[in-house]
Amino acid sequence: MNKVKQLINKSMVAALLSVASLTAFAQVELKTEMYKVIEVQKDNGTSKIEWVTPDNITPGDKVGYRIMVENKGDKAADDIVLNNPVPENTIYVNGSARGANSSIVFSVDQGKTFATPEKLFIEKNGKKLPATAKDYSNVRWVLTSSLKVGEQSSVQYVVQVK
């Protein structure tokens, strides 16, 4: 009995070690930053969008999330997929998701399936309707190139507080 326990313990340690060694090879770190997205009026009558420190967020305000990804390991990381659920009490702002070298897809079913906007549908009163930005539950960025050692990349999107 004791031997069995010891065996299990040993195998668990081994499993933990193997994960640790893998992450040591290619440790991709993720960091999310948030900003208040405001429209600043310029003297010439036009306006520009600025991302500023998020103070005093109230309903109707826009919040921008920037997700930084960095390869701190010693091997290239392939097939990088970034996921972000649209937070509760917010709605995704149409067209706000950006990301270099990435294809951006969305989910309307809490992340079970993803597709590009024109292929997303919702059901309302038994009818199949094209999904709109407010239906999106998750945003996904599929990076089209691998992240080399020491390389950084970032993606972003904007939500509006309900």
Partner: peptide, 9 residues
């Protein structure tokens, strides 16, 4: 808000 990443090595 928490973002996640998956990748292959």
């Amino acid at each position: 808000n928490t973002a996640s990443v998956s990748y292959e090595v």
